[in-house]
Nucleic acid binder design. Structure first.
Length: 320
DNA sequence: CGCATGCACACAACTGGCAT
DNA sequence: ATGCCAGTTGTGTGCATGCG
């Protein structure tokens, strides 16, 4: 099945599979000698050399493994699955006719994950980089990182291209139309974005590509954005127009040039009612009380928030 | 022998996808 | 927003080979 003869190998005695004359012969030592001659530029009789080349003798352990097992297995995996994201626990199933018999039982997943995380077979990977690239083999980074580079970020860019903003609604899925990245097709981008905000997924990648996200207008804090870009500007315009800030509950921002464009259609009356009854936008309001007062906005810290937030802070401060 | 590399395995911790 | 699931990653151990 292979010609990686270990040094200690000795031809078994009393085994008719081997020619009687060779019984007990220290074949491993001979193989090691041959390997050494080849490495060190030593002399191997030409007739022997030709025979050895014919039978594809294993001159180097790693290269041989790569040529005869790993690379062919990767190729076959690609043929069968159309990708080379070999799961870590994958091994070639024994007795599976889809696979050549010599590969049965090989733990390709383990080998591949070692290639990725420990850079095993680095020389061979370099030498075969073109074909590996065609098969989409991922070895220079983690799956997560590649997902980010090849799916999430391109999808965010395409989203920005299409909608001119980056406030992805939560049920948004990357469609199959041509202007969207093919690899990202079907990606639940809305969920990804909300998970990025609430759970901090892709945190490393987002930090690394911070500037790019900024240019796309990625919003980390939705309510903060809502407050700064829509609610506050609307309150300012309302205050200018009516001289006070007592917004009627049914009031909606008109689609009119005098109002901030992003706020068009905002049910400002409803928002103001929620601010009073549900205590929404508490953080934002606390940070700009003076400005709000100048607009004629009357608001007192709700007793529940006082107990939950302000009072504990004061107590803490007292003990400093 | 010491050192480097490759393989197999195991366990814990973590991650992103997804349903709720 | 939360929790579960499947899969990945990190770490550690043991073993073998190859080399100087």
């Amino acid at each position: 099945m292979h010609l990686m003869v270990p040094i200690r190998f000795v031809v078994p005695k009393d085994d008719e599979l081997w020619p009687r004359a060779t019984w007990g012969y220290q074949l491993g030592k001979q193989a090691a000698w041959l390997r050494k001659q080849r490495r060190g530029g030593g002399v191997i009789p030409s007739f022997a050399l030709a025979d050895l080349e014919d039978m594809d003798f294993a001159w180097g352990n790693n290269q041989y493994r790569w040529d005869h097992f790993i690379f062919p297995a990767l190729r076959r995996f690609f043929e069968l699955h159309g990708h080379t994201n070999v799961p870590a626990i994958f091994h070639v199933p024994k007795g599976d006719v889809d696979w050549p018999e010599r590969l049965w039982g090989r733990r390709l997943g383990g080998t591949v994950s070692n290639m990725r995380k420990r850079h095993d077979y680095e020389k061979q990977v370099r030498a075969n980089s073109e074909e590996l690239a065609v098969m989409g083999f991922c070895y220079d980074s983690t799956f997560y990182d590649r997902n980010w580079r090849e799916k999430v970020l391109p999808a965010l860019k395409a989203y920005h291209e299409a909608y001119r903003h980056c406030r992805v609604w939560s049920s948004f899925v990357v469609p199959g139309e041509p202007q969207w990245s093919v690899t990202a097709r079907g990606l639940k981008l809305g969920v990804v974005v909300s998970d990025m905000r609430s759970k901090g997924i892709y945190a490393d990648q987002a930090t690394r590509d911070k500037l790019e996200l900024q240019e796309l207008g990625f919003i980390w804090d939705r309510s903060d954005w809502e407050w700064k870009e829509r609610i506050l500007p609307s309150m300012e315009t309302f205050s200018d127009a009516f001289g006070h800030c007592r917004v009627p509950i049914n009031f909606a921002v008109p689609s009119d040039a005098s109002w901030s464009k992003q706020a068009h259609g905002l049910k400002l009356g409803r928002v103001m009612a929620d601010i009073r009854s549900k205590k929404t936008y508490f953080d934002q309001i606390v940070r700009s009380t003076d400005h709000l007062a100048s607009l004629g906005f009357e608001w007192k810290i709700p007793p529940s928030k006082w107990e939950q937030i302000v009072e504990p802070l004061l107590v803490r401060y007292e003990h400093l």
